[in-house]
Write a protein that binds this DNA or RNA. Structure first.
Length: 287
DNA sequence: AAGAGGCCCTGATAGC
DNA sequence: TGCTATCAGGGCCTCT
C-alpha cells in the first residue's frame, strides 16, 4: 500500500496516540503474513511501554521499553486502525482506503492498550511484523537498504556513481530499495515526470544534470506528499476517514490518456509496463 | 553479476 | 447474472 510519505503519516499519527502507553494484551488472529509472526510475539509485546514510533523507509519501528523493537511493514494492503475495545467505533483511521468502517475480515493482529486497541488489517498479507532484539540485529536489518532521499549521503553524485554503466531503466533504479529507500511505484513515475526523464531510459545514459534533477524532484515530491497527508488512491467516495490528498497532485499516475499537465506540451499520458509494474509518463516532454 | 520475471495473496473492477 | 481476466501503493527469490 504505502510508500515513504504514507508510512510517515501513519508513524506520526500513531506516535501521538500510543507513545508512553502500555500494551495490555495482544491477540494474533492469523500469523501467516508475508513472514510468520513468531510464536513468542505476544509474550514479547505484552506489558511493554511504547517509547517511540519511528520509521525507516517504508518500515515502522516501534521502540519498546524492554529494548526490543517491533518492525512493521504494511506491504501492499496493510492498514493500521485504532478502535475502542469492544465497540466498532473508529478512533483514528490510519488507512488510506478511506473506509470509515473496518470490516472484520483480515484483522490479523490486535494490540490492546488501556482505552483502545490497535488493529492491523491486511487482505493480501504482504505486510509483516518482526521483532528486533538488539542494536546489532537492527543495523544488520537495514544494512542492505540504500539511503533515504533525505539522507545526507543521498546526493547527485551518489546517483550518478550508481547509475553509470548500468543498463537497467532509470525507473527500476528508483524502485530499487538497495539504491534508494522509500520510493514506490506511484512516486517513481511522478519524480521522473517532474525530472523530464523518460522512465525507460537506461541508467547509463542519465547525465549529471539529470541526476541533479532526480535528486531535487525526489525530495520535492516526497516532502509535498507528506505535507498533503500522503496519497489515497482507492475508495474515494467516502471522504470521512480520508487523510491524504496528494492524489490530487498526481501529474501522471493513473492519468493514462489524459493531457500532459505541462504548459505548452501537447503530449498524452501513456501507461506502459516496466518489470510488470505500470508506469505513467508523457512521451513528449520526458526524454 | 546484473537484471528481468515470478511469486506470495485477496479483492475490486472490466469485459464478455 | 455470473463467469473470467486483469490489476493493485512491495519485496524477495530464482533463473539466465
Amino acid at each position: 500500500m504505502p510508500e515513504l510519505p504514507e508510512v510517515e503519516i501513519v508513524r506520526h499519527s500513531l506516535n501521538k496516540k500510543i507513545i508512553q502507553k502500555t500494551i495490555k494484551k495482544v491477540i494474533v488472529r492469523n500469523r501467516n503474513l508475508r513472514t510468520k509472526i513468531p510464536l513468542n510475539f505476544k509474550k514479547i509485546l505484552e506489558n511493554q511501554k511504547i517509547l517511540n514510533v519511528g520509521r525507516f523507509s517504508k518500515y515502522l519501528i516501534i521502540f519498546l521499553s524492554g529494548r526490543n523493537k517491533l518492525l512493521i511493514h504494511l506491504g501492499m494492503s496493510g492498514t493500521i486502525h485504532l478502535l475502542e475495545h469492544h465497540k466498532k467505533n473508529l478512533i483514528t483511521n490510519m488507512s488510506f482506503y478511506n473506509s470509515p468502517k473496518l470490516p472484520d475480515k483480515h484483522n490479523h493482529v490486535e494490540i490492546f492498550f488501556d482505552k483502545f486497541k490497535l488493529v492491523y488489517n491486511d487482505p493480501r498479507r504482504f505486510g509483516f511484523f518482526e521483532i528486533i532484539k538488539d542494536q546489532d540485529q537492527f543495523e544488520k536489518r537495514f544494512k542492505k537498504l540504500g539511503p533515504e532521499p533525505f539522507d545526507s549521503n543521498f546526493d547527485p553524485n551518489y546517483i550518478y556513481n550508481n547509475l553509470k554503466n548500468k543498463k537497467k531503466s532509470v525507473k527500476n533504479f528508483l524502485l530499487d530499495q538497495n539504491f534508494i529507500s522509500g520510493i514506490g511505484n506511484i512516486y517513481a513515475s511522478e519524480i521522473l515526470y517532474l525530472s523530464r526523464i523518460n522512465p525507460f531510459k537506461e541508467a547509463r545514459f542519465i547525465n549529471k544534470v539529470e541526476c541533479k534533477k532526480i535528486f531535487e524532484k525526489t525530495k520535492l515530491v516526497l516532502l509535498n506528499a507528506i505535507k498533503k497527508g500522503g496519497s489515497s488512491i482507492r475508495d474515494f467516495k467516502n471522504i470521512s476517514g480520508s487523510k491524504g490528498s496528494f492524489q490530487k497532485n498526481f501529474k501522471v499516475y493513473q492519468r493514462e490518456g489524459l493531457k500532459c499537465k505541462r504548459v505548452d506540451c501537447k503530449g498524452i499520458i501513456q501507461k506502459k509496463n516496466i518489470s510488470n509494474r505500470s508506469t505513467f509518463f508523457c512521451g513528449f516532454c520526458q526524454k
